Amino acid sequence: MMPSEDAALSNVSRETQERLTCFADLLTRWTARINLISPGDVPHLWDRHIRDCLQLVPLVERGTTITDLGSGGGFPGIILAIATDAEVTLIESDRRKAAFLREASRATGCRTRVVDQRIENVEIPRAPVVTARALAGLPQLLGWTEKLLAPDGYALFLKGQHAPDELTDAARDWHMTVSQIPGRTAGGVILKISDIRRV
């Protein structure tokens, strides 16, 4: 167990803890072969990545359907699938990362579907929740999200200190309803966005 794992898991069930630990062990092994997270982040995996994604859990209805954009190493898609029993579509165009996502889903018993295509080419049913973390600027995220989000749904984007600038940029081309929820890290924010449509 890594030093900050206890704090990261303080509010989740024992079963969820075990599944997250299984995921973390698998990701650590795969990161030695492919770039899922930077090698320097491995000692901080629980605090910097897993706990960061767990802050979305209270914002997601248990068992809902989620589309996760640019899933990469499984953040936040796999974490939400484990912690909320959501059915998650993981979109990841990198075939090696997609292979990891499939193996992580199998090992942790997640209800996921991995789509190894570019986001702009994906054609799937609209979901009530769309998520993304460390993927692209907000204007680009909204362009992708518009066709993947259900009309009454919302997007959850984990953002850093540049979120105000991204919101200003996005407002030139997009109408949206935005809630800004303070994140757990300095300057971090969760953007909860609904009513997305082009100006």
Rank of each mutant, 00 (worst) to 15 (best):
46 W>F: 11
47 D>R: 03
47 D>C: 12
48 R>C: 05
49 H>A: 03
49 H>L: 03
49 H>K: 15
51 R>W: 09
52 D>A: 03
52 D>H: 06
53 C>D: 02
53 C>K: 04
54 L>N: 01
56 L>G: 01
58 P>N: 06
59 L>S: 15
59 L>V: 11
60 V>W: 01
65 T>N: 04
66 I>G: 00
67 T>K: 01
67 T>P: 00
68 D>C: 12
68 D>A: 15
68 D>K: 09
71 S>M: 03
72 G>F: 00
72 G>D: 06
73 G>Y: 03
74 G>P: 08
78 I>M: 01
79 I>R: 00
80 L>P: 02
81 A>Y: 01
81 A>R: 00
81 A>Q: 02
82 I>K: 00
87 E>T: 14
87 E>M: 08
88 V>C: 03
90 L>H: 01
90 L>T: 03
92 E>V: 06
92 E>I: 13
93 S>Q: 06
93 S>C: 14
94 D>S: 07
99 A>C: 08
100 F>Y: 06
103 E>A: 13
104 A>H: 02
105 S>L: 06
105 S>Q: 09
106 R>W: 05
107 A>W: 05
107 A>R: 13
108 T>W: 02
108 T>F: 02
109 G>A: 10
110 C>T: 08
111 R>Q: 13
111 R>Y: 14
111 R>N: 10
112 T>Q: 14
114 V>C: 10
114 V>G: 00
115 V>L: 09
117 Q>R: 11
117 Q>C: 07
119 I>A: 00
122 V>I: 05
122 V>N: 07
122 V>H: 09
123 E>Q: 13
126 R>L: 01
126 R>A: 13
127 A>R: 06
127 A>D: 08
129 V>E: 02
130 V>E: 03
130 V>R: 00
130 V>K: 00
131 T>H: 07
135 L>R: 08
135 L>D: 10
136 A>K: 06
137 G>E: 13
137 G>Y: 12
139 P>Y: 05
140 Q>N: 14
141 L>A: 15
142 L>S: 12
142 L>F: 11
143 G>R: 14
146 E>M: 05
146 E>L: 14
